[in-house]
Design a protein around this nucleic acid. Structure first.
Lengths: 346, 346
DNA sequence: TTGTAAGCGTTATCAT
DNA sequence: ATGATAACGCTTACAA
């Protein structure tokens, strides 16, 4: 019982393969022809082979979204937005996961070159020469949700994290916090570098100096927990009691922490709780990404909305546009951030 | 600058296409041949067309995992496990998302029939005749992570939620809780039905009666929050104060809530907090799935581990085995649950 | 060891 | 309107 092909259907219907193909693709045919083909198709349970079809047509009507870590909730926001746009355009979206390394990313882009997708949407954590090169040489259009050098000449949609950082710091300062610490992810990543720079600038804008800065090994909850103590250091409950008993403005103790993403922020909150510190009373916490985790966390997390949904949407649109016309000039879109204030800040 | 094909490489190298193919696939060839082909490949930046290749070979070396909701953290656990198994076997995993409806699921299975994957792993929320039929008729092997009727004759790996429910109830009862409520997801789903039944049985086993039962519209955080009040009902902070002032055993007030998954459980915890109730002091909460969210939530959530990782692993193995031999007898594996005790229970 | 040629299952271009 | 047939880019007998 081998799978039926268009030839089998043609034989069963007593017509030519060309006619079957036409009927299936809604091209003009007589009533009777449609009828006969339809019956044969139903009878045999025939389903066209997508590979053969796309080999001929040159299109798969599939788009691939590659994310670094499926466990990062920021990607679900993005994924939802991308899905909406591409499915409206008649494409199916498939998601594949790369590790945090550039090499995986490069391998993906290279392999996707003649693959099962008409386009590729990537959001790489790390970018190097090789990656840029493989993107440019890729046979299918690639758009990057993230930052690559302008001279690379690829479509990109990126966030404005310095601006986002400023929003966070403005808010904290307005609430009277001055001793602001920063928990970054790996600084050798694109977002890590951008956020480090943004944090420094934002503090400078307020004439403040960082209370502490730490770098987690990864943009994950576990890494956040692991790195938090270094940030909080001597901030134990013991000392808090002392602080409360003596003065409300002991130098050098953070009264606010900004984390480079929501996962890290939640990790910090857990460590704060473990140290007997209250959020936001003792320490305010703000995350970045404004993912679903931000509202699910407790207390709900104030988070910088870096526009993941809009970035996903715009990136998808860029990809569709480039599939349509590969000669158009590369665009570089940057979406503006906003601040979602919740209960982890006063 | 059209994309180079194997013919182009052959021409450039001055050899036949067969030789190019052989070299690329590591078949025996002379030093010199390998050398010439390699050079031409590099020069032209040739990448084989996966569709053409798989059309010929009959395999794509891609496997598809379809999940109902990318926002549900239980799927990331599963996805990680599946990824590990299939990539070790030389397959690439792609993830696609269906909605909560059967029709989407059926469409996916039908469409995948002759698609870009050698196998399909689905975890459907709802199952009906049509879905079972489409699975049986599917041209590529399908394994179901979930429950379908034995007579369907398809490979399945499912959880034992009644047993899991019992674990949860045992634990709560051991901690002295007797007024146990249950927040289910939609009861017309496979997991919803199983958990409702399991909850009833578990309470019966302890000679207890449900303190309250509610049904959320969806297995999501938002639905959990929305449904929680119905469950907690008159359990406002006002009344808690009264309760504390009068008696510690007011009939009919839940002192524990079991939720059908972690997302719902976290939703309940938020509502409890909003009502001024403490977890676990006033109300204990236990979730199901033991997803990453369980440890990220605050307080960390006691959760029934329904073996998502193991289910993913076993399902992936089943799929690989069936791809290997489509005639083997269908297997139905059930994986046993365990309880991950955290701080949301006493 | 290498080359020639026949498909894999479609669609599209021609005749008819 | 329908039918024969040549591609699409690759692998694999089979021949040389």
């Amino acid at each position: 019982m081998s799978r039926p092909t268009i030839a089998g259907v043609a034989r069963a219907a007593g017509v030519s393969v060309a006619s079957v193909s036409r009927v299936l693709n809604g091209l003009p045919a007589t009533e009777e022809m449609v009828e006969r083909v339809q019956r044969a198709v139903d009878e045999l349970g025939y389903v066209p082979d997508a590979r053969a079809r796309s080999l001929k047509v040159g299109r798969t009507f599939q788009l691939t979204l590659a994310v670094a870590d499926v466990g990062n909730p920021v990607y679900v926001t993005m994924m939802r937005a991308v899905e909406e746009v591409v499915s409206a355009a008649g494409y199916r979206l498939v998601v594949t996961t790369t590790g945090p390394d550039v090499v995986d990313e490069v391998a993906l882009v290279r392999g996707m070159a003649r693959g099962y997708a008409d386009g590729l949407l990537i959001s790489p954590l790390r970018v190097d020469e090789d990656l840029v090169k493989s993107i440019r040489e890729c046979e299918v259009p690639v758009v990057v949700a993230g930052n690559v050098p302008a001279k690379a000449g690829v479509d990109t949609v990126r966030a404005n994290s310095p601006k986002g950082m400023l929003l966070a710091v403005d808010h904290l300062v307005a609430k009277g916090r001055r001793r602001i610490a920063f928990l970054n992810g790996p600084a050798d990543t694109v977002p890590g570098a951008a956020r480090a720079k943004g944090f420094a600038e934002a503090l400078r804008a307020h004439d403040l100096r960082p209370a502490a800065v730490a770098e987690a090994d990864d943009f994950t909850f576990a890494a956040g927990r692991a790195a938090a103590p270094a940030l909080l250091n001597s901030l134990t409950s013991e000392e808090v009691r002392v602080r409360v008993a003596t003065s409300s403005d002991v130098r050098g103790r953070p009264d606010a922490v900004i984390a480079a993403n929501d996962l890290l922020a939640v990790g910090v909150m857990h460590e704060l709780a473990a140290a007997g510190l209250e959020v936001p009373a003792d320490v305010a916490v703000v995350g970045m990404d404004d993912s679903e985790l931000a509202e699910q966390s407790f207390p709900p997390l104030t988070s910088v909305n870096l526009g993941s949904a809009e970035r996903g949407r715009r990136a998808a649109e860029l990809l569709l546009a480039r599939i349509e016309d590969n000669e158009r000039a590369p665009r570089r879109i940057v979406v503006q951030p906003s601040l979602s204030i919740r209960r982890s800040t006063p």
